[in-house]
Design a protein around this nucleic acid. Structure first.
Lengths: 198, 198
DNA sequence: CCCTTTTCACCTAGGTGGTAAGAT
DNA sequence: ATCTTACCACCTAGGTGAAAAGGG
């Protein structure tokens, strides 16, 4: 049976055109990708993982005046295709099914040389998250069954554009509304003059 | 092969007579109990857990003037004997052996009605932490082998007296020295008079 | 008197977006 | 112009000991 993606929040963002921040140090996703899982063998071991595939081979830019995304040319060279294993992997089916599985430790970066195992994406490109379940086959010749022990699920509403700063004002606002604790700082105290005296 | 308890810090405290704070809400141990493990089957599953047994059947009190612990009578009725499973359990031997295993999530409480699964201890009593390794036997009739699949380790230097507030001044000082970040607040702002007006 | 509980200021650890400066 | 980066104030979440109050 297909796992479910609790998706109210994703739908809200998807309507606006979800944007995910990527930074050099790595940024968590918001919304977080989470799934409710059904139909596993409670006693068997499974690995859960995610990866991200380009939606198309285009680069985008955001037109502020029209508040819309425009194609800005062909995609930049693909980034290293990394995967993120859910840190509880491997675990028994019973464990995974007990509650919603949340990928809140996953981080996105635009640093091609990232050394922290984060997912590397190109800013201004569109991505589709994918969710994979791997059954840990106890049989000796388990490689032979790799195909059948591997299942992939795609939730289209989780597509997004990677950005280094929110582009669409309404997405930023939605983000702030979704997490009331986020401070909206209005201004920064005047910084000292940079260096009139070297 | 016997696991090792990194023990420099434990020895320091043990010389003074280690005291562990217990609170109603639960308090972490300091020092933390941690072990380096050797000799597991890398591919097999193991559970790691701890429990605490009374060192004797006595109750103690601390004599400030002589800075020493005195026997204050027979032990209070024993507390429910709980165990604490390391939250990563079950996991493969390879995983456990990869690095030092730290029981830093374990909490001690004096609340007999505790509902958070914390370890319940009697204040002013002495305890010996114990560390257990359970091999998860894949055989059908695994109960029959319970004995051989279960190993217990005791590190005597980790004995302590449970207290609700540090008794020995030098233990308190040692604690503060061990964690430089701990604030030593000198005084509290005068509190408003309690209720001259009910 | 001896011990426990409550409260609270203060700390760590880590994530967040705005701003301004930097880069291309 | 357009996008990226560094910096930083501000937040959450949770642990900590001291002091003060409470209890037997």
């Amino acid at each position: 049976r297909t796992p479910a993606q609790p998706s109210v929040r994703w739908d809200e963002f998807n309507q606006l055109g979800t944007e995910m921040i990527v930074t050099k140090a790595g940024r968590r996703m918001f919304p977080t990708f989470q799934v409710k899982i059904f139909g596993m063998d409670p006693m068997a071991d499974y690995m859960l993982l995610m990866d991200f595939v380009p939606v198309d081979d285009k680069r985008y830019r955001y037109a502020f005046h029209s508040s819309s995304w425009l194609v800005a040319g062909k995609a930049d060279p693909a980034t290293p295709g990394r995967v993120h294993y859910h840190p509880d992997s491997p675990a028994k089916g019973a464990q995974w099914m007990k509650q919603i599985v949340s990928f809140d430790k996953l981080k996105l970066t635009n640093n091609l040389l990232d050394d922290n195992g984060h997912i590397i994406l190109n800013s201004m490109h569109r991505y589709q998250p994918r969710f994979h379940v791997v059954y840990v086959d106890p049989r000796k010749d388990s490689e032979k069954y790799a195909e059948e022990n591997f299942k992939t699920f795609v939730f289209e509403e989780t597509r997004f554009t990677a950005v280094t700063a929110y582009q669409n004002h309404r997405v930023r606002q939605q983000r702030i509304n979704s997490a009331p604790f986020i401070a909206v700082r209005r201004s920064r105290p005047a910084s000292p003059p940079r260096s009139s005296l070297r």
